[in-house]
Structure formats: C-alpha cells, structure tokens
Design a protein around this nucleic acid. Structure first.
Length: 346
DNA sequence: AAACCGGGGCT
DNA sequence: AGCCCAGGTTT
C-alpha cells in the first residue's frame, strides 16, 4: 500500500506532461479543465481549454457570456450538456456566491455538471483535501495492480474501487497523487499493450503475475447501436437560408441545424416533398429540389448512427424567418452540420 | 440499474 | 467494428 502511493508520486514527478492547468491551483482553471476532460482525451480538450481561458479569463467573463457563444466555443468537443452546465454554474458562482468558488468536496458536489470525480479532483488539487478520484485510468490501474475482476461499471465495482482508492490516497499530497495515478494510467498502464517491462510496479502487480493484464479491467457491455435517418432541408434563395435550434432532450440540445425531417427509415424525394414538415416550410410549388450527397453520410456517435441526407431546396421567393448565409458560421452546430457547411458552397 | 449524452483516435 | 477517453444526469 505504502509502496504503491510512493511509486505513483515518484513516477509522476519524473514523467508528468507539461499542461497549462498544472501551472496553477486556481479553482476556476482546474474546474474548467476537469469539465472539458470528462470522457475526453487531454490532447482533444487542451486546445479548447486555451480558447476558453483566452475568451473568459475569469469566472465572471464566462458568467457574462451568452449561452450561444459558449456553445460555439465548445463546438466539436461533444457532450454539450457539459457546456450548458458549465455556463449555468459560472453564473451561479459569480452572482449567487459573489465569485467565491466552493472550497470542499461536499459543496463542489452540489454544482451542476460536477459529480464525484470532478468534486474530488478540484478538492484535492485546489484545496489539498484527501478526496480520491476514480476515473477510467484509476479503474484500469487498480483493477490490474490488485487483480480485481469486479466489473468497473457495476454498482458493486463502483463502490469497491472508490473504497480502495480511499485507502490508497496520499494524505500529504492528495492532488499530486490523484493526478499521478491518472497520468500513470494514461501513459504507463495504458488500455492496449502496456510495456510492463519498464513499469515501476511490475514486481508487485497481480495482473502481471497472473498474465491477466490484457483481461482487466472487466466491463459490462452496453446495448447496441441505434440507427436514425436525418433529412436536412437546405432551403435557399440568393441571400438567406433557415436554421432551427434543437430544444428537445435529445442529442445536440440547444445547438442549431437546418430544418429536419427525421424518420426510422430512409426517405425518398417523393416522401420528402409531401411531408408535413416540408409543406410547413414550402407551402407552394415554386421550388426545385435535389439530393446533395450521392454517397451515404453516416455520422457515428457512441450509441447512434445518424444516416444523413442533405436536400438542397432552391427558391425564388422570399424566405421568412431566415438568416443571412454569411452568418451561418456564427451559430453553434453539430460537427455533422459544420462539415456540410464547410463543403457546400453557399 | 440502465439509458442517454459526442467526437476522435487507435487497433 | 469495437473499445476507450481525467463522467454526469436522467429515467
């Protein structure tokens, strides 16, 4: 036990990457970096962190922003509820708490978008509280080192590893230990083909002794992929097009997209032009329509495949409630839409 | 307890 | 094609 925490901190001090949020213990910076890094590789979140710190140097700057601006800066990072909760929490801390960031695990846990992991990370890094983090890296390191085959995404597993992590954390340097075990999992005890020959813990690693490294951690499989068919209407005249905001509790909530006809099945041109949603936008006969993408576009999310058709609908008539095409790039949109806008010459 | 919520990188 | 990523919220 003692050996484990000592080796982790020692390995971390010799191998840690240089990251901007490792140069500070400002709760605002640590919070921002942690939210952005949820279920996201550091290499992917890093440029977003730099953009946000540049645009919003303090929590007050973030609190004063419009949600659309925050979502636009977040565009491409995914899991957009993180951005909405980030903004709501910034306003809460700035205006309700007068800018004073909660300074302990229990109070941090009350913030929107902050769960057990993030509250522990901020509490340990910023306030030296011995709250253990258990992220994907920690599950992997502990399950291998101690040879635990309880599924990490079962209720029993979540409790077991949290308890184990509590016993292991260094009470003198909880922040360094927490970051150390995560970095160790990310770079030494990697998911695939870790080089156990150069691992400082290889002599006491149970999984290595039992040749179980590749089999751990154990994870329960999730359900299979759902297929959806999206038909976007690119309604054009010389100046304008139409965008709508997604407001339902569904993917891409509060982001923008072209008028959408969704169906369980693939739709043909005939089915599109007689669809109620199409008629709502185009109540007359003065239009021409053609399919933009001849080859299939399948946008893949974790548990959904979005089969997409972009229908170009050209009009001579005036467009009500449209937006200038030049302003298209100002709206936060899913990557699926952003890719189309970039490729299509408006 | 299970489902839902993105996008990218690697094998 | 499948898995993983400095997880959290909702049902």
């Amino acid at each position: 036990m003692n050996n484990f925490k000592t080796e982790i901190i020692s390995w971390y001090s010799a191998n840690k990457r240089s990251l901007p949020w490792r140069e500070t213990s400002e709760p605002y910076c640590i919070w921002l970096s942690e939210i952005m890094s949820q279920q996201t590789r550091i290499e992917q979140s890093l440029p977003y962190y730099l953009k946000f710190i540049d645009a919003y140097p303090t929590i007050f700057h973030l609190a004063e922003a419009k949600e659309d601006e925050v979502l636009k800066l977040w565009q491409g990072l995914g899991y957009y509820s993180r951005a909405r909760n980030l903004h709501a929490t910034a306003k809460y801390i700035a205006y309700e708490l007068n800018g004073k960031f909660p300074d302990n695990y229990n109070d941090l846990l009350k913030l929107k978008g902050v769960g057990d992991y993030t509250a522990s990370a901020i509490a340990s890094i910023c306030f030296n509280e011995p709250a253990p983090v258990v992220d994907g890296n920690v599950y992997r390191v502990l399950s291998r080192y101690f040879g635990v085959d309880i599924p990490i995404n079962s209720t029993k597993g979540i409790k077991y590893f949290k308890t184990l992590a509590k016993e292991l954390i260094d009470h003198e340097q909880p922040g360094e230990y927490n970051q150390g075990i995560m970095e160790f999992g990310a770079r030494q005890c990697k998911p695939q083909s870790p080089d156990c020959n150069i691992c400082p813990l290889n002599e006491s690693c149970v999984a290595l002794q039992k040749k179980m490294v590749a089999l751990l951690p154990v994870k329960i499989k999730k359900g299979k992929i759902k297929h959806r068919h999206f038909n976007y209407l690119i309604i054009n005249n010389d100046e304008k097009t139409i965008l709508e905001q997604r407001t339902a509790n569904d993917i891409w909530k509060n982001l923008y997209e072209f008028p959408l006809i969704e169906d369980k099945h693939e739709l043909t041109e005939e089915q599109i032009i007689k669809h109620d949603i199409f008629k709502k936008y185009i109540p007359h006969n003065k239009f021409s329509i053609h399919l933009y993408n001849n080859d299939k576009i399948v946008h893949k999310l974790s548990h959904q495949y979005i089969h997409t058709k972009f229908w170009i609908v050209n009009l001579q008539t005036k467009i009500e409630n449209g937006i200038e095409k030049k302003q298209l790039n100002e709206y936060p949109v899913p990557i699926l839409i952003a890719n189309f806008v970039e490729e299509f010459s408006f």
